[in-house]
């Protein structure tokens, strides 16, 4: 069994605060972390390895310091880890990212299953997983909360997908790409043995040159259909509080409900 896990280094957006005076992000001390959703993807791949044998390869695209998240993946138990890093990849949107990752995956050789987290907490798009699946022409199973059945010999997989209304049970064929949600498992901590291995291992860095057969026009900004044209801080929470007055509580309630309905939140 060969499982591939796509992971990303992201700023810990829960640690980001807005400077109330300047309205800009306070980024001092905001650590770069392994995208939390990706830890579930790694865990699920490792569980398959424990059950069926084989190997798990972690792959990431980013600046050289993104090696940190690959180390974490290896410390958890991944066997190999590869970083895609090149100036040519800069400015990639989700299309170009999916293209680049899928080119690297092709180069990794045969695989049975690919895991991604449901989305990254910095971009929150959830588009790269489906993008990779389409580039590789394999089945995509998004928002997976449980693998009910998997048989690598027969190429079968049956999963539960967590949708708004409940869990959909879907059967498909391998190889497939799964994006996973938090409910799927409880990720392990890195073991001390894994930490030792991770800190002593060599991490190959692949550049655009290494992705033979890829079209360089699809890398980075050139391969990205979208452009960011403006970034701004959302208006801060207004200091204005409207106190609802009324002769009776019924009157107050009616006024409040009216306003909330007008806000279109109910």
């Amino acid at each position: 069994m060969h499982a591939i896990v796509c992971i990303k280094q992201v700023p810990d957006t829960t640690e980001v605060k807005i400077d109330p005076v300047r309205g800009t992000l306070i980024r001092e001390g905001v650590p770069s972390i392994l995208n939390p959703f990706d830890t579930y993807a790694i865990e699920e791949a490792l569980r398959l390895k424990e059950q069926f044998g084989g190997k798990v390869t972690a792959i990431s695209m980013g600046p050289p310091q993104a090696i940190e998240v690959l180390k974490e993946a290896v410390a958890m138990g991944c066997d190999e880890a590869i970083l895609l890093s090149d100036r040519a990849f800069a400015g990639s949107d989700t299309w170009a990212t999916a293209y680049t990752l899928s080119q690297a995956i092709r180069r990794l050789g045969p695989f049975d299953i690919i895991f991604c987290g449901r989305q990254a907490i910095d971009g929150d798009t959830g588009q790269v997983g489906p993008g990779i699946a389409r580039q590789l022409k394999i089945n995509q199973l998004t928002y997976v909360c449980k693998i009910q059945h998997i048989d690598f010999d027969k190429g079968e997989i049956r999963v539960e997908r967590l949708l708004e209304e409940g869990r959909e049970v879907v059967e498909s064929r391998l190889p497939a790409l799964l994006t996973v949600v938090k409910d799927i498992n409880q990720p392990r901590y890195p073991t001390f043995k894994g930490i030792r291995r991770a800190s002593r291992m060599e991490y190959p860095i692949w550049t655009a040159k290494d992705l033979e057969g890829a079209n360089p026009a699809y890398f980075g900004l050139d391969g990205s259909p979208t452009r960011v044209v403006r970034v701004f801080t959302p208006p801060p929470r207004s200091g204005q509080t409207e106190i609802i007055q009324g002769e009776t509580v019924q009157e107050q309630a009616a006024k409040l409900v009216e306003k909330l309905l007008a806000e279109k939140i109910i």
């Binding site: 180390k71 901590y189 930490i195």
Partner: peptide, 15 residues
């Protein structure tokens, strides 16, 4: 701290 110590520190912190 070495890489090894840094990762161990982070792991125990999360634990």
């Amino acid at each position: 701290l070495s890489d090894e110590h840094r990762m161990l520190e982070k792991t125990v912190r999360e634990f």
